[in-house]
Computed example of a mutant assay.
Amino acid sequence: MVKLTLPAEWRVRLIDELERAGSHEIGGIVMGEQLAPGEFRIAEMTFQRRGGLVASFVRNAKWALYSLCNFFSRTEHRYQQFNYLGEWHSHPLFAPAPSKRDHATMIDLTCHGETGANFLILMIARLDASRSLEGSVTVYLPNGTVGAGILRDDESLGRRGRAIE
């Protein structure tokens, strides 16, 4: 099981971006730092507003690759510690769970893509009626296995996070 921690700085930015997007889906990629086997902290996220409609989001691959290259340069290509974890997008009008289309896209990326990843995550986020963040993490393995991850927030370093869901 993968545990993904969303640090306070990224939580605040994510909420701001979700508020700005309103009923349109937005998304991007998630890059992280491995803290222990199966435990990761989001080190960086990208936010792409273009490509989002009310019920769909299409990531700009060139922009994602550019962002990844910059991230790898900043982290001095220490891939075992810092790496691409997967994708994220919002479901402003629906539950924060992958759709059939989301599953198909992530399975294709994981099993047939050229990522070379041991796994990929899909994080889906939304704001509830009280503007609180709701989210989920789904984990995709190259053998086609799909499972639930745990999404936590961690408002200060060294403190155990709490479940966002």
Rank of each mutant, 00 (worst) to 15 (best):
M1C: 03
V2K: 10
V2C: 11
V2Y: 05
T5C: 10
P7I: 12
A8E: 14
A8N: 13
W10T: 12
W10A: 11
W10F: 12
R11T: 08
V12T: 15
D16G: 09
D16V: 03
E17T: 14
E19L: 09
R20N: 07
R20H: 07
R20G: 03
A21R: 09
S23R: 15
H24C: 06
H24Q: 09
I26G: 02
I26D: 01
G28K: 13
V30Y: 03
M31Q: 09
E33L: 11
L35A: 12
L35I: 09
L35M: 13
L35F: 07
P37Y: 01
E39V: 03
F40P: 03
F40Q: 11
A43E: 08
Q48M: 07
G51L: 15
G52E: 06
A55H: 05
V58N: 09
L65V: 13
C69G: 04
N70L: 08
N70G: 07
T75I: 00
Y79N: 08
F82Y: 15
N83L: 03
Y84N: 08
G86W: 03
E87P: 00
E87W: 07
H91R: 11
H91T: 07
P92Q: 05
P92S: 14
S99C: 02
R101P: 00
D102F: 02
D102Q: 02
H103D: 14
H103Q: 09
A104C: 02
D108G: 03
L109A: 07
T110R: 05
C111I: 03
C111T: 12
H112I: 00
G113W: 05
N118G: 08
M123H: 03
M123P: 04
R126T: 01
R131K: 15
S132C: 06
V137N: 07
L141P: 04
N143P: 06
G144Y: 11
G144V: 09
T145W: 01
T145R: 01
T145Y: 04
V146F: 09
V146C: 10
V146Y: 08
A148W: 02
L151E: 13
R152M: 15
D153A: 07
E155C: 08
S156N: 12
L157I: 04
L157R: 00
G158A: 11
R159L: 04
G161T: 01
A163Q: 14
I164A: 11
